[in-house]
């Protein structure tokens, strides 16, 4: 939903970042307003996932230049956990398994960490159970998953649904979905996309990182960006994704060489 009067949520300017000393992001610019849905597409190695990790504050990535403002505030002043509590959410491409920690205990800890930050009351296990069961319906997750260890023994699709469940519970302002569609069959994709669509709205921006236009049939973006070699080369509306589908990424990267 494009509303040029909506507040700017995320402002990325000339962002540079390295991992193990190797430059990956090389001058990335992006503006995201509240309520918008963005898709960032691009070939392998273009830096899409790095961008998501840098925004979330992964310790392995070093920011070497540029700035990122989140609600007008320098995002890099915040540690990763503080960014999360401020409303930045990353749905992981490969969610880690945490044996021995139940999903419900984990979710409640996360929920309460944010509640404390916002000066709201923490929920006790019973109150939280009501909330989480309600939210679990959104991604058609069986409540038995709540008693299992976080992602432990989950299938690929179950892990992705669990990510969206966390998003539903934490109600972030900015949700970054890192290849949430990878490894999903059609049914799982429909469920995950349904969950995301239900959560999309005026108060929340979504940035989807994906290789494939397929996801965009389910979650329709307002803006599509093509990324290569650590920066955004081309931006457009949904038709850009369709054009990419038919012409391939070389069309964009080649266009860049010609320019």
């Amino acid at each position: 939903m494009i509303d040029n009067n909506a507040a700017t949520l995320l402002e990325v300017r000339n962002l540079h970042a390295t991992v193990n000393g190797v430059p990956i992001l090389k001058g990335l610019d992006l503006t995201v307003r509240a309520g918008e849905v963005h898709a960032i597409m691009g070939p392998n190695g273009s830096g899409k996932s790095t961008f998501s990790k840098v925004l979330a504050g992964h310790p392995a990535y070093e920011v070497t230049g540029g700035e990122v403002l989140f609600e007008g505030r320098n995002l890099f002043e915040l540690e990763a956990d503080a960014r999360a509590r401020a409303g930045v959410f990353l749905a992981f491409q490969y969610p880690v398994e945490i044996p021995g920690v139940t999903n419900s205990a984990f979710l409640r800890l996360a929920y309460n960490a944010k509640a404390i930050e916002e000066g709201r009351d923490e929920l006790d296990p019973l109150e939280f159970d009501d909330l989480v069961r309600e939210k679990a319906k959104l991604v058609e997750m069986d409540p038995s998953f709540l008693d299992r260890s976080v992602n432990d023994g989950f299938s690929g699709g179950e892990k992705k649904r669990n990510e969206i469940l966390q998003m539903a519970i934490l109600e972030p302002k900015l949700a970054i979905l890192d290849e949430t569609d990878s490894g999903l069959d059609i049914d799982a994709l429909r469920i995950v996309a349904g969950g995301v669509n239900a959560l999309a709205g005026p108060g929340r921006a979504i940035v989807m990182i994906t290789h494939y236009q397929r996801l965009l049939n389910y979650i329709v973006p307002d803006h599509v960006h093509v990324m290569a070699d650590g920066r955004i080369l081309k931006s457009g509306d949904r038709s850009l994704a369709l054009e990419l589908e038919s012409r391939g990424y070389d069309w964009v990267t080649g266009a860049r060489q010609a320019a």
Partner: peptide, 29 residues
């Protein structure tokens, strides 16, 4: 097993600091 950076980052990304994360992982273990 190993408490890895990725696990702690996962907790951090959900708003949970390292101390609480470790405590929860250890208690689970």
């Amino acid at each position: 097993s190993k408490i890895g950076e990725e696990q702690l980052f996962y907790f951090a990304q959900r708003g949970v600091d390292a101390e609480q994360a470790i405590s929860m992982i250890i208690n689970g273990f």
